[in-house]
């Protein structure tokens, strides 16, 4: 490296100021001009997070939100060279620093995870599905699913409710499936029961519906009279929704 330590240090000091806003003295730098760099850099980060997490931004009091973004940007070294991926780092930082407790927002991790997943599935690289046919045996032929999806589990129904008070009253176990519509590119999501979440997870692994149904008693699913028909109805519906693509060929 050709940089002298002094120049290196000046660049570090300048960028540290942009990240933290904590005052610095740099040779030749006009303080009233320097502040614009902090403003521009911070606004970019804040706008990115607002855009990625519109529900969280709306739900969280402005003072808390501002503190979160400042905390994140000051202490976290942003790694992504693509700014659209930065919200994942924000979400990860929130989880690692236990923001749920710190900001007294028990549903925060779920909400950030849900909003990030929407963005991720919308933008993610195309994934080619396995070869499939449109006809087959629903019970005994492995199904081919739309690979552009995420299956998430939550303690709060952030995919169903927006109001914080309602969310807090509804703590439980929730599953949501997000997938990208192959034609429109829009992200669709659907609430799943624990059984359907389990089913989806197993189908991804290539297990047949019959084999998964056989496993139901071990999950303490005792009312199995209509389980097979309900399961097939769900899968046929999801075929119409372009999540179930067809039958392995």
């Amino acid at each position: 490296m050709n940089l002298l330590p002094d120049t290196y240090h000046i660049q570090q000091t300048f960028s540290a100021y942009c990240r933290t806003g904590e005052s610095v003295t740099l040779p030749g730098v006009a303080p009233d001009r320097l502040k614009h760099y902090r403003r521009l850099v911070f606004n970019m980060i804040n706008d990115t997070m607002e855009g990625a997490f519109p529900i969280a931004f709306k739900n969280i009091p402005a003072r808390k939100w501002n503190r979160m973004v400042k905390d994140f940007f000051s202490h976290h070294a942003c790694q992504s060279y693509q700014v659209w991926k930065l919200p994942l780092e924000f979400y990860t930082y929130a989880v690692e620093h236990n923001w749920e407790d710190e900001y007294q927002l028990p549903y925060l991790n779920d909400l950030l995870a849900f909003e990030w997943a929407e963005m991720e599935v919308y933008n993610m690289e195309d994934i080619t599905a396995d070869a499939y046919t449109l006809t087959g045996d629903w019970l005994d032929t492995p199904l081919v699913l739309n690979p552009e999806h995420r299956l998430l589990s939550f303690s709060y129904p952030v995919h169903l409710l927006a109001k914080p008070k309602e969310l807090l009253r509804s703590k439980g176990v929730y599953f949501v499936l997000l997938y990208r519509h192959p034609e429109t590119g829009n992200v669709e999501f659907t609430d799943l029961s624990p059984w359907l979440a389990f089913l989806t997870e197993q189908l991804v692994l290539g297990i047949t519906v019959r084999d998964i149904l056989d496993y139901a008693p071990q999950l303490n699913i005792t009312e199995t009279d209509t389980l097979e028909q309900d399961t097939l109805d769900f899968l046929k519906h999801m075929q119409q929704q372009h999540f179930v693509l067809g039958f392995q060929s």
Binding site: N2, L3, L4, T7, I10, Q11, Q12, F14, S15, A16, C18, R19, Y37, L40, V41, M44, I45, T48, H76, A77, C78, Q79, S80, Y81, V83, L86
Partner: peptide
Amino acid sequence: CDNAHMYDLLPIPFRMDAVK
């Protein structure tokens, strides 16, 4: 800088070592 992206264009010190 310091392994952290800033997503904006920060000015480089106009110095010969920076040129090199």
